[in-house]
Amino acid sequence: SELMNSSKLIRMLEEDGWRLVRVTGSAHHFKHPKKPGLVTVPHPKKDLPIGTVKSIQKSAGL
């Protein structure tokens, strides 16, 4: 199965306009000026399962 580095996923979010608002432990929480909701990324993780990545991307509207 495909894995993604959390840094790469965070870069994709930031390029889309998401900004880090809070860190709780290894959970990084992002908000967007125009899009609704809060997106949480486990970080640092070298090997996020593709299912997790897809669900984060979906929440972020990517």
Rank of each mutant, 00 (worst) to 15 (best):
G37S: 05
P36Y: 08
D16I: 06
P36K: 11
R22Q: 11
H29N: 08
P44T: 04
V39D: 00
L62T: 04
A27I: 10
S6F: 03
V41A: 02
K34C: 10
A60P: 02
R11T: 13
S55H: 15
K31P: 00
L3T: 15
V53H: 03
P36T: 09
K35T: 04
F30I: 00
L3A: 14
S7G: 12
E14K: 13
G17R: 03
K45S: 07
I56V: 06
K31D: 12
L9Q: 02
K31E: 13
D16P: 00
S55Y: 11
K54N: 10
W18Y: 03
P44F: 04
I10V: 05
V53I: 10
P49T: 08
G25C: 07
G51C: 09
S26Q: 14
S26L: 13
L48M: 07
K8S: 13
K35G: 03
S7E: 13
E14M: 11
L38A: 07
V23S: 08
F30H: 01
V39Q: 03
V39N: 01
G51M: 09
L13V: 05
A60M: 05
K46F: 13
P33G: 08
L3C: 09
I56R: 01
V23M: 08
K58H: 13
L38I: 14
P42H: 05
D16Y: 05
L13R: 00
T40D: 05
L62N: 03
Q57E: 08
L48C: 02
V23E: 09
G25K: 13
R11I: 12
G25M: 12
L38D: 08
D47W: 15
K58Y: 08
K8I: 14
V21K: 06
S59W: 06
S55D: 15
R22T: 10
H43V: 02
K45W: 06
D16L: 05
P36F: 08
P49W: 05
L62D: 02
G25A: 14
S6K: 02
T52Y: 08
H28E: 04
K8M: 15
I50P: 13
V21N: 06
K46G: 09
K54I: 15
W18F: 03
T52G: 02
V53R: 03
S6T: 04
K8G: 12
V21W: 10
P42R: 04
V53M: 04
S59P: 02
S1T: 11
G51N: 13
K46C: 08
E14Q: 10
P44A: 04
L3M: 11
S26K: 12
I50F: 10
R11A: 15
G17M: 04
I56D: 02
K45Y: 08
R11Q: 13
P42W: 03
T52N: 04
V39C: 04
G25H: 15
G25W: 12
G51D: 15
K31C: 10
L3W: 08
E14C: 07
E2I: 11
E15A: 09
K54M: 07
S26R: 14
K58N: 14
M4F: 11
Q57K: 12
T24R: 08
V39S: 02
V23K: 14
T24F: 08
R11G: 11
E2Y: 08
H32P: 00
S7K: 12
L3Q: 14
M12C: 06
L3D: 09
P42L: 05
Q57H: 07
H29F: 12
T24H: 11
S26N: 13
S1Y: 04
K58F: 08
H32Q: 01
V39T: 04
S26M: 12
F30K: 00
H32C: 01
L3R: 13
S7I: 09
G61N: 06
L62S: 03
K46D: 15
G17I: 00
L48G: 01
P42A: 05
N5W: 06
L20H: 04
K45M: 11
